[in-house]
């Protein structure tokens, strides 16, 4: 199971990459493994304003429906257009090709609530 060092993580198993005031968001390797085969992804429209901690999308495996929560507040400036047709990218490449949305950060202060890779790995090991 991978926990890339450059990313931040949430307790809901999203990852965030912060670059130049923009957060790229997806779900973690742990999350995709727990879900199993991802067969459907529902994302917000570009321009939607997200609030940290609130659901912004849905990931469905064959068996189950799971909400995806916004790790930070801000406006959606881009979504991964590949996911509706190839949702399995969430399984095969959770940290790269399986990214979900890019959010223009509204408030940098929230980043303090996110975990670094070591803390998240520890969190996941406690959950198992």
């Amino acid at each position: 199971m991978e926990f890339p060092e450059e990313l931040k993580y949430t307790e809901e198993h999203e990852w965030v990459l912060i670059e130049d005031g923009v957060a790229t968001v997806g779900i973690t390797d742990f999350a995709q493994d727990a879900l199993g085969d991802v067969v459907f992804v529902e994302l917000p429209e570009v321009g939607t304003v997200l609030e940290a901690g609130k659901s912004f999308g849905v990931v469905e495996s064959v068996k189950a429906v799971s909400d995806v929560y916004a790790p930070v507040s801000g406006e959606v400036i881009e979504i991964n257009e590949e996911l509706p047709d190839t949702p399995e990218l969430v399984n095969t490449s959770p940290y790269e090709d399986g990214w979900m949305v890019k959010i223009k950060l509204a408030d940098n202060v929230e980043l303090d609530d996110l975990m670094d890779a070591d803390a998240y790995q520890e969190f996941v090991e406690d959950e198992e």
């Binding site: 199993g36 067969v39 495996s61 064959v62 068996k63």
Partner: peptide
């Protein structure tokens, strides 16, 4: 296998993946 509670039984819900 990933094991789940099914009607009071601990049962395998999947091994390699449901689709496969």
């Amino acid at each position: 296998a990933r094991m789940v509670d099914f009607g009071g039984w601990e049962m395998p819900v999947q091994y390699r993946g449901v689709i496969e």
